[in-house]
Write a protein that binds this DNA or RNA. Structure first.
Lengths: 239, 239
DNA sequence: CGCGGCTTTGATGTTCATCAAGTAAAGTGG
DNA sequence: CCACTTTACTTGATGAACATCAAAGCCGCG
């Protein structure tokens, strides 16, 4: 890279609105500023409407993704053609950490379930940076490890609950972790909830209706309002 | 570290029987020999009898483990006091990669389910090495990523099968991946199988008996012989 | 030898998936 | 913009899959 190109990149980097980006913070702490500026300037930003696919399972891995804003679902189709949602990720989650470092192809599809902005980096640049700055690699390792443990924990939590418990857990998750509000618009269909927690669509609907009749939540289409938080917590914690 | 100490360590390293160690190979490819020798010489080897606990959930993380020989179960107790087995690991699996880089305490218990030899390294030495040699960090990242994806995949596979399918899958797993033989000694109790694939002990027993009556397997206590491999595969793949 | 944990089988009831059928909502093409 | 199709949502009825409870035999261990 010649001097002029470097200057150009640095200029681009200055206009780079990445202040809130955890990835940049991660990099900043460990990598000399020149390098992180270059990374920042190489970055592409892409936006996706609700429902648009960001990457498709089995496509070759070329990019490293980072959610700047929005909500994304990570899903996988098994040989038996059933679709499974692995997790629902919010901004600053490192969902792309899951397969990118060991596989050739994406193991999961990523789909925007709300309007979503993604930062895209060529994966080899990220790897190269981690090679040359061990600190950064350790940072990625930590994030990756945390992401995986959270997903595993979710599976265990889910599997040890009956259907009412699962729905309660899911509603609490949306309320507390994703929207941080007792009233929110479900970004997913009933069918997708079923795919996330391993039950049938009919039963998702049935149990949401039960909760409505029991005055635990209010339902208005996709809008959910949690009325009896304690009750919901009790059902989630079991039983 | 003075010159004499380094010499001593190098000497120890030469007596270090790590030729088959994937970890060492991983390190060798990326780290100058002096360093890997030091690591090797710092290593402690410990052996565990069947049933002995290697590390306990919630204990503070100090060491990095590597299975040299034997079989180990990774398990976790939830708040509801139920025990869940996350995975069963064989030699050269990087099970300890799961939490060690982001948590303060072990998220899972590790228990030897056969006579097991473990190589133990101080975690901070591993981290230090990864800091200074990005390649090694990337290697860990790849292994960690693979381990997590495998576990996630196992959960999905498991959850999309009925009980007969789960038992069939588990028997095939022991046969093909762990013992590489159509006849083997189960290293786990029926109860532990139940904890691994999320069903009751009674049903594990019941379905194993069914398979016996249907002449798919022979059972002699803990000894399992697979007779009708194709049938078992069919049940696993569904039916 | 007796106690606790593991194994086994049977009986019973609950939970949940499946099937069916209908309404509502949302996209599609003329 | 309206008929048409498709997809999402909803409720009920039914049966199958599975957990739970109970009882008894077995084995290892102090």
């Amino acid at each position: 890279m010649n001097e002029i190109q470097v200057q150009e990149l640095k200029h681009k980097a200055e206009n780079c609105n990445c202040e809130e980006c955890v990835l940049k913070h991660l990099i900043f702490n460990y990598v000399p500023e020149e390098e992180s500026d270059i990374l920042c300037s190489v970055k592409r930003e892409r936006s996706f409407k609700k429902g648009e696919v960001i990457v498709r399972q089995n496509e070759p891995i070329v990019d490293f993704f980072y959610i700047k804003s929005g909500i994304v679902k990570l899903s996988k189709v098994t040989e038996s053609k059933r679709n499974h949602i692995i997790t629902i990720a919010k901004p600053h989650d490192y969902i792309s950490l899951l397969t990118v470092f060991h596989g050739k192809n994406y193991a999961y599809s990523m789909t925007a379930i709300e309007y979503t902005e993604i930062c895209v980096f060529p994966l080899n640049l990220i790897v190269d940076l981690a090679m040359r700055h061990g600190n950064f690699g350790i940072g990625l390792l930590k994030k990756s490890s945390k992401t995986a443990d959270d997903i595993i924990d979710h599976f265990i939590q889910n599997n040890s609950r009956n259907l009412r418990g699962r729905i309660a857990m899911t509603m609490l998750d949306f309320s507390l972790n994703i929207y941080k509000s007792h009233i929110f618009e479900l970004p997913v269909s009933r069918k997708e909830i079923a795919e996330l927690i391993g039950m049938t669509t009919e039963n998702v609907i049935r149990i949401l209706s039960e909760f409505r009749k029991e005055k635990i939540i209010k339902i208005n289409g996709k809008e959910i309002e949690i009325i009896d938080f304690d009750r919901l917590k009790m059902i989630s914690d079991h039983g």
